[in-house]
Amino acid sequence: MTNEFLAFAPISTAADMPVADPAAALLDEMMARLGVDGLSAAIADPGLLALVDQHAAAVRDALLDADRDADAAGLAAYATSIVAAARRGGRAVPAIGEAPVRPADWMAAEWYLLRLLGVCALAEALDVLP
Rank of each mutant, 00 (worst) to 15 (best):
Q54W: 07
V19M: 14
D45K: 01
A79R: 00
D61K: 13
L27S: 03
A109S: 07
A99L: 15
A77I: 01
Y78E: 03
R88H: 06
A57L: 12
E29T: 10
L64C: 11
A108Q: 12
P130F: 00
A121I: 03
P18A: 06
P100C: 07
I43Q: 14
A15V: 08
H55T: 08
A79V: 02
D21C: 11
P103S: 04
A58P: 00
D65R: 15
V119F: 08
D61C: 07
L75G: 01
V52H: 07
I43H: 10
A50R: 09
D127M: 03
A9H: 04
G97V: 07
A86M: 08
G118T: 13
L34K: 02
E124G: 04
A73M: 06
E98C: 10
W106C: 05
W106G: 08
G38W: 06
L27F: 03
A62P: 09
G47V: 12
A108F: 02
V19A: 14
S40T: 11
A108V: 08
T13W: 02
V93Q: 05
L114N: 06
T13F: 05
E98M: 12
A57F: 08
D69Q: 14
M1N: 01
L113I: 10
L63Y: 04
E124W: 10
A77E: 11
G118F: 08
M107N: 15
R68Y: 11
M107P: 10
T13E: 05
D45E: 14
D105L: 05
A99D: 12
A72T: 00
A121E: 14
G38M: 05
A121Q: 14
A24D: 06
A24F: 01
A66F: 14
Q54M: 11
A104W: 01
E98G: 01
A41V: 08
V119R: 09
A85D: 13
R88D: 13
A99S: 15
S12M: 01
A77L: 05
G74S: 08
M30D: 05
A70Y: 01
P18T: 06
F8N: 13
L63W: 07
L64S: 15
D67S: 15
L126W: 01
A25M: 05
P46R: 07
V93C: 11
A9R: 13
P46G: 06
L116E: 10
D71H: 09
D61I: 14
M107D: 13
R115G: 00
A42M: 00
I11L: 09
E4Y: 14
A123G: 15
Y112E: 12
Y78V: 00
E4R: 14
V59S: 11
A44E: 11
A50Y: 00
I43E: 15
D65F: 15
Y112Q: 13
H55Q: 15
L129H: 01
R33Q: 13
W106S: 12
A56S: 13
D71V: 07
F5A: 14
S12I: 02
P103D: 10
